[in-house]
Design a binder for these strands. Structure first.
Lengths: 181, 181
DNA sequence: GAACTATTATGACTAGGTACTAATAGTAGT
DNA sequence: ACTACTATTAGTACCTAGTCATAATAGTTC
């Protein structure tokens, strides 16, 4: 009951809990100790800390969105991305497009064997909605390593066997033509 | 300096501030009083409270990357996005494409006068690199409200007078054809 | 030299605790 | 009935990060 009550409202003090359960404050404290529930201030602090990291969650700091599980430079790469609560529209639980794009785009950047690859153009297509808790597997394939400093990458993303996203990425690569980067 | 420092890190104590500015703790307290800056615990609490009310203020405005400064539903919209350290490649300070895409994409979603708009397809073009500390102004224009449940939105993003991004977005809208959403 | 401000110090008090010790009540095992 | 054990309660000392009020000191301005 303590875990549940504090879970619902982390801002409740021991005194209020003692009142609610008609026991002494000391009992609440001993029970919190036993259940490893931190004190009010620590609870509030950790809520606040999670909040501050939200802005980072909006689009992560990592260079790559999703986790790369296989890569062969200049040929192909695969990454997985688990759609969580913070990635979806709150009203309907559908993943926001830019997260799928971010996964595909960062995979396209990663697959290119270059210190510095940048996206020049992209044609993308969201073929099916993705929902919270689904796992998106993105597969990137380099289709053309042009001599002009452009490389074409095709990315297809799947949930299970269903394609949810398809994109053609035209990438700059720096070591061939510095000026274009 | 106090306002700025605490703005950057609300978790800092008076003692740490006193250390930082080489003054006494009392001076920090008097200055906080004068500036109406609440004490550490109140600051943390209000951060945590905002966090918890997140789901309540799940209005579309929150789902947008960048800040909307003008909007006329079904016609046009403008948002600004300040490129910060966490948005750029560490090696060269160039903004990662998916942030520009996210700004444009969420603006395209916002400009549509519909409870639920989703991106179906997009053709995008990164026309110039964007660097840290630059301010990107995205301008969305609805070019065609199709009867088929599709709406076309053109987004152009600028840093100063220079276009840095251009995209054509084909959007679904739910209230016309629920099945397609 | 008086007036004023900024800074610092000091003491009393607060909320919401931790950590420890101790007393009491009730239950279970033998 | 006696012992062992647990749950609950109480009380004390202490902690952090403050508030509030008062007072002393130092430096500047009129």
């Amino acid at each position: 009951m303590l875990v549940e009550t504090i879970g619902e409202n982390p801002f409740v003090t021991d005194e209020e809990l003692a009142d609610k359960f008609a026991v002494s404050v000391q009992t609440i404290r001993l029970d919190r100790l036993e259940l490893s529930i931190p004190e009010l201030r620590e609870r509030i602090k950790s809520v606040a800390e999670n909040h501050l990291s939200d802005e980072i969650k909006a689009l992560p700091i990592d260079e790559i969105i999703g986790e790369i599980i296989d890569i062969e430079l200049d040929h192909n790469a695969i990454s997985i991305f688990d759609v969580k609560h913070e990635h979806v529209f709150k009203r309907n639980g559908i993943a926001r497009g830019h997260h799928l794009f971010a996964q595909a785009n960062s995979l396209a950047v990663a697959v290119i064997n270059d210190e510095l690859a940048l996206t020049a153009k992209a044609h993308i297509h969201f073929t099916r909605q993705v929902r919270e808790h689904e796992r998106v597997v993105a597969k990137a394939r380099v289709t053309d390593v042009g001599a002009s400093g452009r490389t074409l990458v095709e990315v297809k993303s799947f949930v299970g066997h269903e394609m949810v996203f398809k994109g053609q990425f035209e990438m700059y690569r720096s070591n061939l033509d510095e000026k274009d980067v």
